[in-house]
Every structure is written in structure tokens, then in C-alpha cells.
Nucleic acid binder design. Structure first.
Length: 227
DNA sequence: GCGACAG
DNA sequence: ATCTTGTCGC
């Protein structure tokens, strides 16, 4: 016998969609953690080489954003890129890096969408459910839905709407910069997801733990990929 | 049928 | 995501 894997890799698109719909039933969009109880937040992101995925997880204090720890996981790519299926491509490695962190964060930021997904279950929501940890999705571009551009001021927002439903928020974390798309991952409401994103950005466009994870993953790729 | 399409 | 030079702007 072998231990139950935290994540299974589907062998077909149909199987992947079925798994998303199954896990989505365990997803809740309500706020579960009080912001005052948050002391640690994390960010996780991935980089790729031809056949490997390099995942990085960074842990920082909140709201001071001081570095606490970081981990990197390198695994073979076992799923193609398909819009809406990102969790199956990056998920396994991201989970490996995250579970190796020395302490559990109260919230995790992911580079991708959460609820702002065609089946309302993007990478951030998927990871949150599997880790049973509140999560937030931060994306550069929209996958579904449409939002008016937020005013050009720090913290300005504009709802991302899809099918008459508010699935996320375009947030101008820093005036003069393009807005980021924030959406609920798991155990969090949209207002808190936006609030934590802004509080973790510290004047930059992207939440600090996510920026660090991005750099770390890229560095890992260069060192192992070739060099 | 024709686009759109996280990373 | 990744492949890549110069270049406009603060």
C-alpha cells in the first residue's frame, strides 16, 4: 500500500473537471479567520524548465512582512498547461514546498485565480481546500469575467463580474501600476482577500511573499535547469 | 462557428 | 510560464 497522495493527477480533461467539481464541494467562501489573528502569511509560485517545475513557498510575518522561512520543491511536469487546469500542473510541487515550511501560515497567496475561474475553482481555491488553509488568488490577467479599470489611486478597486456574479476584484495596489486581479481562494471572503492583499503589498504591486516566491522559483530554475 | 484563454 | 534588445519613464 502507498500513502494517500495530497493531490492526484488526472489522466484526462474529463477526469480533471470531475475532480475539480468534487473538491469544489468542500470549498467555502466565508471568512473563517479574523484578520487580528493572522501572524504568518505565505506565498507560493512556480517556474518551469522543459521537464521540471520549480515551486517556492515563502513564509513571512504579518503585518510586518519580515522573512521567516522558505522552501523549494522540484518535481517533473506531469500535466500540460490548459487554461482552467493550472492546479494540476503546478499544484503537486506547490504543495510539496508548502508542507515543508516549518510553521503553518494562517493565509496563503497563490499566483493565479481562486473563485475567478470558469468552474469557480481555480488554483488558489484548489490548494486551499487540500491544505485546509485560507487562501487568496492573485493574477496578472483575467481568465473569465470583466472589470472596469479601478481609479488610478492606491487601493482603488473595481469588481470582476462573470455571469452576473462578483467573482473577484481588480485592485490597484499601487497608483500608477496595472491592477492585479484578486479572488477568494478558500475560507475567506472577497473583502478580506482584498484587505490582506493590500496589507501584504507594502506599497508594491504584488504581495511580498508572492514576489519572494517568484524570485526564489526563478533562481532555483537557473541553478538546476542549466548552469 | 468564432474568439478567449491564470501560469 | 519561457524565449529575448533595446528603450521610455520616474
Amino acid at each position: 500500500m502507498k500513502a494517500d497522495p495530497l493531490m492526484e493527477i488526472p489522466e484526462s480533461r474529463e477526469e480533471a473537471i470531475a475532480l475539480q467539481q468534487l473538491l469544489r464541494q468542500r470549498c467555502i467562501w466565508e471568512r473563517v479567520i479574523d484578520t487580528n489573528d493572522i501572524a504568518l502569511v505565505a506565498g507560493a509560485d512556480a517556474a518551469y524548465s522543459e521537464s521540471l517545475v520549480y515551486a517556492a513557498a515563502v513564509l513571512v510575518s504579518f503585518p510586518s512582512m519580515e522573512p521567516v522561512a522558505h522552501r523549494v520543491a522540484i518535481e517533473p511536469l506531469a500535466f500540460p498547461y490548459e487554461p482552467g487546469m493550472l492546479a494540476f500542473r503546478e499544484g503537486p510541487a506547490l504543495l510539496s514546498a508548502l508542507i515543508r515550511l516549518p510553521m503553518r501560515p494562517q493565509v496563503i497567496f497563490f499566483n493565479g485565480h481562486g473563485r475567478a475561474h470558469p468552474r469557480r475553482f481555480g488554483l488558489a481555491a484548489h490548494m486551499g481546500v487540500l491544505l485546509h488553509t485560507p487562501s487568496v488568488g492573485i493574477a496578472e490577467r483575467t481568465l473569465i469575467g470583466r472589470a472596469e479599470p479601478p481609479a488610478d489611486a492606491d487601493g482603488a478597486t473595481s469588481p470582476l463580474i462573470d455571469g452576473g456574479e462578483v467573482v473577484g476584484m481588480a485592485v490597484r495596489t499601487r497608483s500608477g501600476s496595472r491592477p492585479v486581479i484578486v479572488s477568494q481562494g478558500y475560507m475567506i471572503d472577497l473583502a478580506q482577500a482584498v484587505e490582506l492583499t493590500i496589507a501584504s503589498a507594502h506599497g508594491e504591486r504584488i504581495p511580498l511573499p508572492l514576489r519572494q516566491a517568484d524570485r526564489l522559483a526563478g533562481a532555483a530554475r537557473r541553478e538546476h535547469g542549466f548552469a
